[in-house]
Each structure stands twice: as structure tokens, then as C-alpha cells.
Simulated assay, not measured.
Amino acid sequence: MQLNDRNILITGGRRVGAKLAVDLAQRGANIALTYFQSRDTIEAVVDEVEELGVRGLAVQADLRQPADVEALVAQTVEEFGSIDCLINMASTFNASPLDQLAPEDFDDNIASNLKAPYLTSLAAARAMQQNPTVDGLQGKIVNFADWAVFRPYKGFLPYLIAKGGVVTMTTALALELAPTITVNAVAPAMIDPPPHLTPEQIESIRQASPLKRIGVPSDANNLVLYLLEGTDFVTGEVFRVDGGRFLGTDHL
């Protein structure tokens, strides 16, 4: 799929998503970004992509709510004319130690990390199905999962259950939407460590990887670019971007 003049919706857009938005804008794509509370951050990203000569859009939405998702898709289509690609990046990541688990931990993780991309994928897919078919395709969806659904670590049970659901959703939805919409997923480990981590925690994560590296945004984003513009022959796949952490080391 050629990305020039395509319309791409990214849920979330801070940190790794912000860099992806710029990468896509540099290829001529118009970018819509969602936010729940981080309005200033997302609007700054929109300003950055618009400086590249494409159109940008920031939309406030609670993606756990069907009405908000439908309004998001409708507003994006009204502004851009269509949705050609959806990148589901919005997520929450909170520890839930087993001895402290409460029912709402499960409910909150399922809502934010599985229900939200599910609702957004369905709404965006219905919009894509109104697109003309070009080279056999009407659109593409890329979900973000987590490498640890394949090799879980402790303390994040509800989160990992929800992200495991994203993996299943990806394969099932790929079958449902074939042959005109592809659906794939990226399952990263630590990419661009969040600011609350200490240097000691970051070093521990580095040592847990056989490659002894921390991921950078391009490690994940280049894969997304490949799935969008590099191939039209991949669907239903989940790609780990984890520095080899799935393989394990003596440090785990």
C-alpha cells in the first residue's frame, strides 16, 4: 500500500506513537490521533505532522465507550474522507500483584487493553469496507500486543490476559476481514523506557535481553511501516520485537 495521501488513525500517540505519526506523515499520510486526557501532548504531535504538509486531527475519546469510538471514526471520516489504516496503540500498563488483586483490576485491564482496540477495530473496519478496493485491499489494521503474553512475567496477570486477547483478536479478525483488510500485531518488549523507571530498573531490563539492548521507537515503528507499505501479503501474524527476551536468559 502506498502511504501518500492515505488517512491513518492512531489510538494514543505519546512517545512511540508520536514518532510513528511523524514517520507516517513524512510519507505523505494524513494522521488522526486520539487522546483521553493528554490533550496538549497529542495536539503538539498534530502540529508537528501538519508542519510536514499533511493534515492532522486530534480527537478526544474514551475508547472503552462504544459511542465515543463511533464518534471518533465518524469524525475522522468526515475530516479526511476515509480511514485507510488503523494503528491500535493506546494501552494501560499497571502492576497487579497476585496478593493484591481486586475484581476491578481485571475489569479495568480488559476494558482498556482489549475492549478498546476491539471496538475501534470493528468501527474502523466498517469504515474501511466503504473504501474503493485498490490492488485488492480496502485497508489495514495493526494492533499492539506484548511479547510477554508468550512468556509471562509475574505481577501483571490481568494486563497479560487482556493483551493475550489482542493476539487472539488479531488472528480471528484477520480471517473475518480477509481478503480486503489485513490485520497484524506487533508484540514489543521495552521500547523507549518510560520516565518513571530508574536507571537500575532499565539496566535490569537490558540484562534480561539476550541482545543486551533496550528497544528504540524505530525498532517497532519500522515493522509497522513494513506491514503498511512493505507488503500486502501478510495477515494474521504477531511479531515479537523483544531483543530476544522470549528466549530467556539466566537473569530471568
Rank of each mutant, 00 (worst) to 15 (best):
A29D: 09
I10A: 04
V234H: 02
L160T: 01
G12T: 04
G53D: 05
M169D: 07
A145G: 10
D108F: 10
I141W: 02
A178N: 09
D135R: 14
V46I: 15
D192E: 07
S82D: 07
Y159T: 09
D99H: 15
P179F: 06
D68G: 06
Q75T: 15
A125F: 01
K163S: 03
F233V: 00
E203C: 05
L173V: 08
G56E: 08
A102G: 02
P199Q: 09
L33V: 06
S96G: 06
A102V: 13
I202C: 06
G56P: 00
T249I: 11
V16L: 07
G136K: 14
R55L: 15
L52M: 02
A124K: 06
G13F: 10
Q100L: 05
A145E: 08
P132M: 08
P193A: 14
D242E: 05
G155W: 12
I110G: 03
R39M: 10
S96P: 10
A25C: 13
G136W: 09
R151F: 15
L119D: 00
V224D: 02
E70M: 04
T182E: 11
F233H: 04
V77H: 07
G244T: 08
R64S: 09
N4F: 14
L197W: 13
T76L: 05
L197C: 06
E203M: 07
D68H: 13
G28V: 01
Q207H: 08
D5L: 10
Y118N: 00
D107Q: 10
T76K: 03
V46F: 06
P152F: 04
A116H: 05
I10L: 03
E200V: 13
Q130L: 11
T171F: 08
A18F: 12
R14K: 14
N4H: 11
R14Q: 14
V77F: 11
A123Q: 08
P66I: 05
A127M: 03
C85M: 09
F156V: 15
P194T: 10
P103M: 08
I87F: 07
T170Y: 11
L9K: 00
R15V: 01
A185M: 03
N131E: 10
A185L: 02
L252N: 11
G13M: 04
A25P: 02
I191D: 00
G81I: 13
M128R: 07
H196S: 11
A187G: 03
L57H: 00
P97K: 09
M1R: 06
R126S: 13
A174D: 10
V167G: 05
M89Y: 12
T235L: 08
M190H: 01
E51P: 00
D242A: 05
T198L: 04
M1H: 12
L33G: 00
Q2P: 01
K212A: 10
T120M: 09
V69I: 13
V241W: 01
L173I: 12
Q130F: 14
S121C: 14
L160S: 01
A29Y: 04
S112F: 02
T180P: 02
A125Q: 10
F156Q: 01
N30P: 12
V167I: 14
V186S: 03
P132K: 06
P194C: 09
N7W: 10
F156T: 03
D232F: 02
V183R: 08
A95N: 14
I141A: 03
T171N: 02
T92L: 12
K115A: 01
D135M: 12
T198C: 13
